[in-house]
Computed example of a mutant assay.
Amino acid sequence: MLQPTIGLIGLGAMGAGIATTLRRQGHELRVCDAQPGRAQDFAAEGGLACATPAETAAGCDVLVSVVVNAEQTEAVLFGKHGAAAAMSPGSVFVMCSTVDPSWSTALEARLAEHGILYLDAPISGGAARAASGQMTMMTAGAPAAYEKAGGVLDAMAAKVYRLGDRAGAGSKVKIINQLLAGVHIAAAAEAMALGLREGVDAAALYEVITHSAGNSWMFENRMAHVLAGDYTPLSAVDIFVKDLGLVLDMARASKFPLPLSSTAHQMFMQASSAGFAREDDSAVIKIFPGIDLPAARPTLTDASS
């Protein structure tokens, strides 16, 4: 069988990794990004850079969207030069953002009016796993959508969970994952902040915790950023303002209490309002008073200057 024609919109940290994985496996890609130059830089090593979502979607069997939120997805599909009008009936739109599940359910119906199949397919694992093809996808959609795009999903990720035959289930599972991720980052920051306040050597604390029962993937990953004094955003503070907000919105609809999520959300809100919105989400540690955070490690250029 001929390989499907794939378009990918959104070449941020995760999208660029996914695109690289697909290209490495021999797929020809049409790519687009709102930031000037990103698509051209990618296409310099293979692929076709497109100027708009509509141009990207034209002639594609599968269009993958890796943008930040529902608002950006709306723009990709239905904004000026939007992809929906250019997609062929029977093609598949794969939505990889973290969004309100009810919005995702409604999007499936809207796309069906255009004859477009839809997969609710949020992703997890970070930029490095996206680039190595080792990320996780939490997907839901009609069997016909899987029949056409299932091979593309398997090429993108090591784990592709099929959670239902209608949109919404993938987004619900992703939101629950984000509940844990956000709470774990907040708890990791709190633990490291307490250690610093009590005069414990930060590197020693990190070494002990990462080899003890209190460890979590988020402690091990994010507190390494704190030790390095490097808050370059791989996932920004404001991502968890958004994602934990979605967690609370989903629970509020069924009047379900989430005390830990509420506290973590307030911590990220505090960090955002204090000026750390676009820093790495580990910068939530900066809300704690009376601690001296590790300084940024000098680069080779800094050391030699």
Rank of each mutant, 00 (worst) to 15 (best):
E198K: 14
V247C: 15
G290E: 14
V208K: 05
I287E: 01
V208R: 10
G245M: 07
A155Q: 03
P257T: 02
L244G: 05
A271I: 04
N215T: 15
G168V: 08
T263W: 14
D165R: 14
L163Y: 13
I287N: 03
Q266V: 02
D281S: 02
M267K: 13
L248P: 01
F288I: 04
I285A: 00
D281I: 01
K286Q: 02
Y231D: 09
A224F: 06
A181D: 06
A188M: 11
V247E: 11
V200Q: 12
H184I: 06
F219L: 03
E198A: 12
W217M: 01
T232A: 14
V152E: 05
V247M: 07
E207N: 10
A169P: 00
A186G: 13
Y231W: 14
V208A: 14
A264E: 00
A191E: 05
R252E: 14
D249S: 15
T232F: 07
F288Q: 00
L153E: 00
H265N: 06
A186E: 10
V237P: 07
F288Y: 15
S262M: 14
M267T: 09
M269N: 07
L153K: 03
Y206W: 12
D243K: 05
G195F: 03
S216W: 04
V183H: 06
K159E: 08
L194W: 12
G151N: 13
D280M: 00
M223W: 10
M223A: 07
N215Q: 14
A202Q: 09
R197P: 05
Q266F: 10
V183S: 04
S282H: 01
A188P: 04
K242N: 08
M192N: 10
D238Y: 08
V183P: 01
A253Q: 15
H265L: 14
A169C: 10
L179M: 12
S171H: 06
F219Q: 02
D238E: 15
I239M: 08
D281P: 06
A203P: 09
V173P: 00
D243R: 07
D230P: 03
I239L: 13
I209H: 09
F288S: 01
P233M: 14
Y231K: 06
A277C: 05
W217R: 11
S216I: 04
L234R: 15
V200N: 11
A189G: 01
M269S: 10
G151K: 06
A155W: 05
V160N: 07
E220S: 13
R197Y: 01
D281R: 00
G195W: 07
M223T: 10
V241C: 09
S171N: 09
F240N: 03
S235G: 15
A157G: 08
A155K: 02
R278G: 11
Y206A: 03
V160A: 08
I285L: 03
N215A: 12
